[in-house]
Design a binder for these strands. Structure first.
Lengths: 204, 204
DNA sequence: ACCGGGGTGACACATTTGTGTCACCCCGGT
DNA sequence: ACCGGGGTGACACAAATGTGTCACCCCGGT
């Protein structure tokens, strides 16, 4: 039987090494490529790969962007997203980027194995341990690009006037957006919104 | 030769499984205990353990507290802290808690192996890949307990008046503390301070 | 053409936040 | 006893922030 050829994209070296070992010990799969940054992933990807296991939080870029790019250039490759966060907003975003499987890092290897197998066979895989709570929230509205932008700029220490200027919107609109963020994240202050956003990996 | 008996304390299951595999494949070490939460770690620790590899960010508590506790009850056990963050403030705090070795998760397994060996032999191990920049900042003042408290409460969505009341300090003192936080973290807004603090793992 | 929803900007207003100043207290060094 | 530093609280004031209201524009459906 042909082995499933896996590519690992993950910046935590120990984690990647351990994962590689576990996969290589499996009879029906093998790691054929690795990358620990966004840039390296672009270089090391090749036609030979069947499935990628990709960490979404890379130091030099968003793993989901990577997925979008790969989908165009190598449409036959399947992608399993691997992440610390299992929030609804996040899963939704992953799905929109064409991810085939989604597994949080707190899962067991068996589940990653299952995800690789399933996606390889052309089906999609959603981590079964996801709380029903999370599933229910899947239909919740995600933050818009502009809203994420605002959070990112707030996180960098800019004040509201500066940000509004930079985004070419009025202070009024800015504040409307912030209000909208509050409602979507169910928080009451910018501080809390930032905390939640960072924890969910929405901004970096 | 006697094998070094290692305990893994890490909440990311896949990571722990991979690490266990890597360690067990080594000739001179073996995993004899595991835990994926703070509580479990307290239960599963035993006299038989030589070295613990402990993740600092556990879902139900601070891994460094764990270290402090272990030091009292099992003074012979060595501890290697494993963490995503390699910031100066963090390393300093780890050292104060009696950690014997410090390795960031982006390190390679070889470095973890070295840390286990070194600490087992009674020496201390500071990850050699730490930037000189980080080392230089080691002497920088860390945030006080009260300052961390303030950040934590701000992160939870409380406003300044509420927090001052809760901490039994006046608004004046509160604001003085915030100013102090700004200076120490080299930021200009609370938003930025929170972002930095979360990224450095100072608050959760 | 008309209407209504959704997004925008201007403005007003109360509240919160950031900054500085003053006075006080405690404590260790002179 | 005196002084000075460090921490505290009260207050004042400017600036930023949060909230609501109004008017406007665009666009798709009726």
């Amino acid at each position: 039987m042909e082995k499933i050829k896996v590519m690992l994209i993950e910046d935590h070296n120990v984690f990647r090494e351990g994962l590689k070992k576990l996969i290589d010990l499996e009879e029906n799969m093998a790691v054929v490529a690795e990358a620990n940054t966004y840039q390296q992933a672009l270089q090391n990807i090749n036609d030979n790969v069947d499935v990628t296991l990709l960490d979404i939080n890379l130091p030099d870029g968003d793993g989901l962007d990577l997925c979008t790019k790969f989908k165009k250039q190598y449409p036959h490759i399947k992608h399993v997203a691997l992440t610390t966060y299992d929030d609804a907003i996040f899963i939704k975003k992953a799905m929109e980027c064409g991810v085939d499987g989604f597994v949080p890092k707190h899962a067991f290897f068996d589940e990653i194995k299952a995800a690789i197998l399933m996606t390889y066979k052309g089906r999609s895989y959603l981590y079964p341990g996801l709380s029903t709570d999370t599933i229910i929230h899947l239909s919740e509205p995600g933050l818009t690009e502009s809203e994420l932008n605002i959070l990112q700029l707030l996180a960098s220490g800019k004040n509201q006037k500066e940000i509004a200027g930079q985004l070419y919107i009025s202070l009024s609109t800015f504040r409307r957006r912030v209000k909208s963020i509050f409602k979507k994240l169910k928080v009451g202050t910018i501080e809390e919104a930032l905390t939640v956003a960072i924890k969910k990996g929405l901004i970096h």
